[in-house]
Amino acid sequence: MLVLVALLCLLFYARLPGRLPTEADYRAVSERIQAELRPGDAVLLFPWWTERARLYLPPEVPVYGYFGSNRDDLMAHPRIWVLGQPRLPRADEAAFLEAFLPGRAATGEPLQAGNLTLTRYANGRYRPHRFVASREYARARVYLESQDGSKRPCPFDGKAHRCPGPPHLYVAPEWHEIQYEPRYCLWMHPPGGAERLVAEFDGVPGGMGLRLEGGLTSEVTFSRPHLSNVHLGVDDAKSGERLLDVVVPQGVPGVQKAERQLPPGEPRTVKIWTRADSPDLRHLCLDVFALGAPGEGS
């Protein structure tokens, strides 16, 4: 039995180099993507950790590969290129496809470049993004709002809306990690107490799904169990109606989401706000979207 185990181990090492891609494989894949790239395309890595691909892929194409990315809807992308390495040990392509395939269909000819496979998919989970707060942030009106309604403005300095108070009180889009996922989102650290940090946006279209997504970044979720929950929401600026709100509970990782259908009509002004009892380490990053229906425009 021991001899058999040893032989199997030797076989493993004999086969391993033959399962790995070469630089030429990566270059071939990159050329194909470059040639057929369309705006809105994205690359999804399988297995999720095979990020060496970033060295070779065209820098303009977003590359997704994080722990959990198999299940990502990638709603912003009508087409997804799956760059796979199914021959890697424990790659488990079946499990990947089970998570990835629903709502998606392969299109075009797949490319096999050595041990790399490149398959293009039409993303049935795509939703047209008519409004994205993190994209529109420069034209937002940002202020700190007390309970009595008084406001302290956070003037825009060309990069961020900086508020009076500690240096982390500002609004700007940034890359952050929420539960392993890289997200380009609005940094909106709540000021603490009853005061709210508010960003007002005009022109949010009606008849769309209004969606709020936010979470605490990095390891902050776990570091201080005594810290308070973070409240965030979206209000209609004119009527004061609460359109959306979610709570990001302390100690619960990941993105908290809420969505509702806005009635058709004129574009409206919304107030995106954050609040937390504790002013410490509430490293909140969020985004608000106005989304079309799934599959629309794909």
Binding site: P59, H176, P182, S218, E219
Partner: peptide
């Protein structure tokens, strides 16, 4: 992971040069 994404933020690129 946050440290790598901070680098994307600081450098304005998500493309590494080597590794």
């Amino acid at each position: 992971r946050e440290h790598e994404f901070n680098t994307w933020q600081a450098f304005g690129t998500r493309t590494p040069v080597t590794g």
